[in-house]
Amino acid sequence: MTIEELKELKANKTVDARGTACPGPLLEAKKTIGTIQAGDIMEVLSADEGSKVDIPKWCTKQGHEYLGTIEESGYFKIFLKKK
């Protein structure tokens, strides 16, 4: 997905994990993805530099689809689609 397409995306669920350091955002993502429906889009907000590598890798390994990341000022928006 291009950045423009990502910006147009409406997430079904937002996980704001900006207040925590690793492994906080990953665990928040893990907990929340269990609560949404297959096909739903989840965005994870993280201010942790490691998350932008960690969460896409975890997402793919778990069988979900990683859609892309937008870098905002001081944090990342990481988009996932639950399978």
Partner: peptide
């Protein structure tokens, strides 16, 4: 504890 968290995220 951090490593256990990673293991938990991967079920």
């Amino acid at each position: 504890g951090v490593i256990l968290s990673g293991a938990a995220a991967d079920d």
